[in-house]
Simulated assay, not measured.
Amino acid sequence: MRLIASDIDGTILGHDGLISQRTVEAFAGAAAAGVDIVFVTGRPPRWLDPIREQIGHTGTVICSNGAVSYDLATEEVTASHVLDWDTVAQVRAIVTELAPEPYFALESLTGFHVEDGFFGNRTAGAGLVPGALTPGMADGGIIKMLAILHSGNADEFLNLVRPGVASLMTVTHSAPDMALLEMGPLGVNKAVTLAQYAAARGIDAADVVAFGDMPNDIEMLSWAGAGYAMASGHPDALAAAALQAPRFELDGVAQVIESRLAALRLA
């Protein structure tokens, strides 16, 4: 075990925004043992405070499902893959034709842009004013396109639109309780960027331990030498992973790390 790659939400972070002390200590123990740690998330760079504040991570975070590599120490984007406006417009037209009343948002390197209706009955984030999505937003480097329905679920939405957009964008989801899709640059996913990160450090897939719980983790869990799906995770993630970690509520990631560190000490 030379590298631990972990998803964040639903894997180590709960709906309350907290990471358990046991999990914090497990990552600290791995780092002290010389294991490289990288977090691999659907979150954008602007939304990494739990990792910074609770774990004290100052290294790389692979964000937006692989579209961005971000250095927490310098707070700088070190690599990115972006969407052009023509592709965004084309995908929007396809999704709108296939699905009833979708609403869209764009995550860029310079901000988050949502159209009217995207949040439905939910409250928009502080300082976020919905408005029209315009071609000029591509100047900020669009790293993710979001589409939401205010009915149904994410699996149904994904199955409905993926055949129509799969040749234009990577489409996945990590939403357990809403019909929200995440679409990014074609051919880019968590595994692609993680493999590049590992290769740059001379680390083979066989020496990578990865944790995840949702469909946007599938490629990463399949690529890693030891890919653990959380027992509390999505059925598709569980089917893709060779290994299973105990449930999130049982500090499953911490249990696995503790066990593997103990094995290293005995080796």
Rank of each mutant, 00 (worst) to 15 (best):
R2S: 01
L3I: 00
I4S: 03
D7I: 14
I12C: 06
G14H: 08
D16R: 15
A26S: 13
A31D: 10
A32P: 00
V35T: 14
V38Q: 06
V40R: 03
V40A: 04
P44C: 13
P44T: 14
P45T: 10
P45S: 08
L48M: 10
P50K: 08
I51P: 15
I55E: 01
G56L: 11
G59K: 10
T60D: 08
T60P: 00
I62C: 13
S64E: 13
A67I: 02
V68H: 14
V68T: 10
S69Q: 13
A73T: 09
T74A: 14
V77W: 12
V82A: 15
V88H: 14
Q90L: 11
V91A: 12
A93F: 12
T96E: 14
L98N: 07
A99K: 06
P100S: 03
F104C: 07
A105D: 06
A105E: 09
L106S: 08
E107F: 09
L109P: 00
L109F: 08
T110H: 02
F112G: 09
V114P: 00
V114D: 11
F118M: 02
F119D: 07
T123C: 06
A126G: 04
V129Y: 05
L133W: 06
P135C: 09
G136M: 04
G136E: 15
I143C: 07
K144T: 08
I148T: 13
G152P: 02
A154E: 05
F157D: 02
L158Q: 09
N159A: 15
P163M: 11
P163N: 12
V165A: 04
A166F: 02
M169P: 11
V171N: 14
A175Y: 05
A175S: 15
P176K: 13
D177N: 10
D177W: 02
M178L: 04
M178R: 09
L180R: 00
L181P: 15
L181Y: 07
M183G: 01
G187D: 06
V188G: 07
K190R: 14
V192L: 07
Y197D: 03
Y197E: 06
A199Y: 06
R201V: 01
D204P: 02
A206D: 11
A206G: 09
V209E: 01
M214Q: 09
I218L: 10
M220T: 08
M220H: 03
L221D: 05
W223M: 03
W223Q: 04
W223A: 01
W223H: 07
A224S: 09
A224K: 12
G225W: 04
G225Q: 06
G227C: 05
A231H: 08
H234Y: 05
H234F: 05
P235Y: 04
D236V: 00
A241V: 02
A245R: 11
P246H: 11
E249W: 05
V253M: 01
S259C: 03
A263Y: 00
A263F: 00
R265T: 15
L266T: 12
